[in-house]
């Protein structure tokens, strides 16, 4: 994809929140940026296809529609690929990261209830032979307003 121009940057930085709740939102964005509605849609589509934005949509407060936890495993390096694959294969796991630490596998489990989250943890413990660290969110301090990209 060609480098981002000033308009792309504004699309990314100015509209991480406050996306218009009106029937023709892309037309409203276009008015603010001096672009036609279909040009806004074309640019957003291009940014999405290039992986620059993951979506234009809602960011929901944790635990609004279910229950989740952050879990970690300290996997012996020789076993990492096997365990990483079995964790990623769980449909309730939506993030799975390798990190540079003795606890080297970090993943988020989302399910309908605390019991369902516990069942996934148990499944992973049984399959991996390792005891996950269970770190459910107790409090969330950040009011997520997006993240300035070009400051």
């Amino acid at each position: 994809m060609p480098p981002l121009d000033e308009t792309d940057r504004r699309l990314l930085d100015d509209f991480q929140r406050g996306f218009p709740l009106t029937p023709r939102p892309y037309a409203v964005l276009g008015q603010r940026l001096g672009l036609a509605e279909d040009e806004v849609r074309r640019r957003l589509g291009r940014l999405h296809d290039a992986g620059i934005i993951s979506r234009v949509g809602a960011v929901v407060r944790p635990h609004t529609a279910g229950c989740s936890t952050l879990a970690a495993l300290a996997v012996p390096p020789a076993d990492l690929e096997r365990v990483a694959a079995l964790v990623s294969a769980q449909p309730e796991v939506n993030h799975n990261y390798q990190r540079d630490h003795a606890f080297n596998l970090w993943f988020v489990i989302c399910a309908d209830s605390r019991e369902a989250v516990g069942a996934v943890l148990e499944r992973i413990a049984d399959a991996s032979g390792l005891e996950p660290l269970d770190l459910p969110l107790l409090e969330d301090f950040h009011i997520d307003l997006g993240f300035p990209l070009w400051t």
Binding site: A50, A58, L145, G146, F147
Partner: peptide, 19 residues
Amino acid sequence: MQGDGRIRRIGAVPNHYAL
């Protein structure tokens, strides 16, 4: 849902890694 905080924001969600 945005007013009571269940939706934090609606907008473009950038992929920070790609940027």
